[in-house]
């Protein structure tokens, strides 16, 4: 019994075999090599004393990712430095010069409203159209109460002018100027779209005269604080070429003119005496056919681990003038 237990113990020892510990002992016995380290003092106290000569400096960790720190770690760091957490400033000034989105957006009829009124769908569309038209008329009347000489044909001319100016500012990357023609809501989107790019855009001609398709008014916070939005239908011929930072063609062409049908939303702060009509957004209907894919190959983000899956993805560049339906 005792022998077997001893054997078991020996077996366990063998299992815990550590070559690191065993190896030097073996070499010593076999080859009689004893290593002497000559750089180390026999009295270890001097090492400790040398260490005391250096005054320790706590170096900052420059490349530490502060986003990964937990709340508790940040707290302890601040406490160490005697810093108070930044106090949230509750009072904020707001100046609402534009609304955050398009309210009651216009839904462009499928096939540009060319469905026969005899068919069921066509009849339904006509009825909805009539209902919406009355609302539009009321909204225009409301606009007239603020802006006496408001008149749709002159407004359409103004809208076209704003539309062209805004695009020209985008072309020249004039951030100061572009805010005169687009609202604060559309501004960041436009800046994002023109970043690191060169845009060549030309407005050639109108195929159809721009017309008001839709108009709506809404009040914000108080009853008198009224904003107006007018959707204008543009059907024009344009040239667009987008180049990347290195001047290489990303999209479009400078020699091919395309017919562009667009519904552009203009907004004005009616209650503001100095309010102006500015581009607020574009209406992109759901039934719009898919846009052409870009020339670049992209890696799908979800399959990045598996590696080689590449796919021709949708266009990355969301340039406003691209979002048109290209008819004919």
């Amino acid at each position: 019994m005792a022998l077997s237990s001893v054997n078991k113990f020996a077996l366990r020892l063998l299992k815990d075999f550590r070559p690191g510990l065993l190896a030097p002992a073996l070499t010593n016995t076999n080859l009689d090599i004893v290593r002497h380290r000559r750089t180390k003092h026999f009295n270890p106290k001097f090492r400790q004393l040398r260490k005391l000569k250096v005054i320790k400096v706590k170096l900052p960790k420059f490349n530490e990712n502060t986003d990964d720190l937990t709340e508790e770690e940040i707290r302890s760091k601040m406490k160490e430095r005697g810093m108070l957490p930044p106090r949230p400033w509750i009072e904020n000034q707001y100046f609402i010069s534009s609304t955050g989105g398009i309210f009651e957006p216009y839904v462009p009829p499928e096939g540009d409203g060319k469905v026969s009124p005899v068919s069921a769908q066509g009849a339904k569309q006509k009825l909805q159209f009539l209902e919406k038209k009355t609302k539009t008329m009321m909204a225009i009347r409301k606009i007239r109460s603020f802006e006496e000489e408001f008149d749709t044909p002159t407004f359409c001319k103004l809208a076209e002018n704003i539309y062209i100016k805004a695009h020209e500012c985008m072309m020249s990357r004039d951030e100061e100027e572009v805010i005169k023609y687009v609202t604060e809501t559309a501004y960041p989107e436009i800046l994002n779209n023109i970043a690191n790019k060169t845009i060549r855009w030309k407005f050639l001609k109108n195929i159809e005269l721009p017309r008001v398709a839709h108009a709506r008014c809404t009040d914000v916070i108080t009853k008198e604080n009224i904003f107006a939005q007018i959707t204008v239908r543009f059907h024009s011929q344009q040239v667009l070429a987008v180049y990347d930072r290195f001047g290489r063609l990303l999209h479009g062409s400078e020699i091919i003119a395309k017919d562009v049908l667009e519904y552009v939303v203009f907004e004005k702060h009616l209650a503001n005496e100095y309010g102006v009509w500015r581009i607020h957004g574009k209406i992109i209907p759901d039934w719009l056919p898919r846009r052409d894919a870009t020339l670049l190959t992209h890696k799908l983000p979800s399959t990045s681990e598996t590696g080689v899956n590449t796919k021709k993805a949708d266009t990355v560049v969301a340039q406003p003038s691209e979002s048109e339906t290209v008819t004919t």
Partner: peptide
């Protein structure tokens, strides 16, 4: 941040 002028079609593609 430097943006280079657009290239003509016959020009050699500028490396990014």
């Amino acid at each position: 941040k430097k943006i280079y002028p657009p290239q003509e079609p016959h020009e050699e593609r500028r490396p990014a």
